[in-house]
Simulated assay, not measured.
Amino acid sequence: MRKGSIAENLNAVSERIVTACRSCDRADDSVTLLAVSKTRPAADLRAAYDAGQRHFGENYLQEALEKQSALTDCDITWHFIGPLQSNKSRDVAEHFHWMHSVDRLKIARRLSEQRAAGMPPLNICLQVNIDDEDSKSGVAPEKLPALAEAVVALPNLRLRGLMAIPARRIGDEDQRTPFRQLAALLDQLREQLPDAELDTLSMGMSGDMEAAIFSGATIVRIGTDIFGART
């Protein structure tokens, strides 16, 4: 169970972000808090919205669409952060602002083709399997340059950066290692694609947020410390 109200928890997480930023000489506003709201009812999202939260991340498509219908009066930036089957890509293309978990060209092409005319480009992060874990999605680091080159050429997408969910490690310094590796991969992509707007590292969750921020995260994905344990 969460320790306080959603508003109190949001404030506590925001204070952690500011403290982490200042500890490594980063601007207080250089990290965006993405509230991971999977399995949470629309009422919880509204409570977070009323407390000032604007970015929400969802893993389950049908659940997310239902929440979007219930929260049409809220000016929310919607992020899809879970694995996506190609036959469900149209709903993400039509209803989300960000897609964090693109790891193959087939999905990227479908998202670009299905993005509705008149909508701004869909912001894309490529998911990298930074630890080569069989249980996790993501493109292998050695295949990232070719995928990025292809995605940046698609007309209705805007490649913004990289996302990863590294394995948990013991010790803050060890936890920084995969985050630094992801940051280095983004630096390499910037050299490869100098005209792309590569400004995003989506990494870090409730248990390793500080390590991620120290390593350059620009979006941290926080669920439990805002909403409590999933039901």
Rank of each mutant, 00 (worst) to 15 (best):
S14Y: 08
R26F: 03
D28S: 09
D28F: 07
Y60A: 09
D25F: 15
D75C: 09
L61C: 06
A35Y: 01
V36T: 02
V18S: 11
R40T: 02
L34K: 00
N9V: 03
A64K: 00
C74Q: 10
L61H: 03
A43Y: 08
S37P: 03
S5L: 01
A7V: 04
N11H: 13
S37T: 05
A48G: 05
S30A: 15
K67F: 10
K3C: 09
K3P: 10
P41S: 04
S14R: 15
G4W: 06
L65K: 05
G82F: 10
V18D: 05
T39I: 04
L10C: 15
E63D: 15
P83T: 15
T19C: 09
R54L: 06
R22W: 14
A27N: 11
A42N: 01
Q62F: 08
V36I: 13
A35D: 01
E63S: 13
S23T: 07
V18H: 08
V18N: 08
D25G: 12
E15H: 14
R26A: 01
D73H: 06
A47T: 10
V13T: 08
V13F: 10
A7Y: 07
A48H: 06
R22T: 10
D75L: 10
D73T: 07
H55P: 06
G82D: 09
E58F: 08
V31N: 00
H55D: 13
A20T: 02
S5I: 03
D75H: 11
S23I: 03
A64M: 00
M1W: 12
A51W: 06
S69Y: 04
L71A: 04
R22V: 04
H79D: 11
R46A: 06
G57V: 02
H55A: 12
A20C: 08
A20S: 13
D44Y: 07
D25T: 13
T72D: 12
G52E: 05
F80Y: 13
N11R: 15
Q62K: 10
L65S: 07
R22Q: 15
D44Q: 12
N11M: 07
L45C: 11
R2G: 13
E15P: 05
A47L: 11
Y60S: 09
A42I: 00
Q53V: 09
I76Y: 06
V31T: 02
H55G: 02
V13E: 08
G52F: 05
V13N: 07
L10Y: 14
D75F: 06
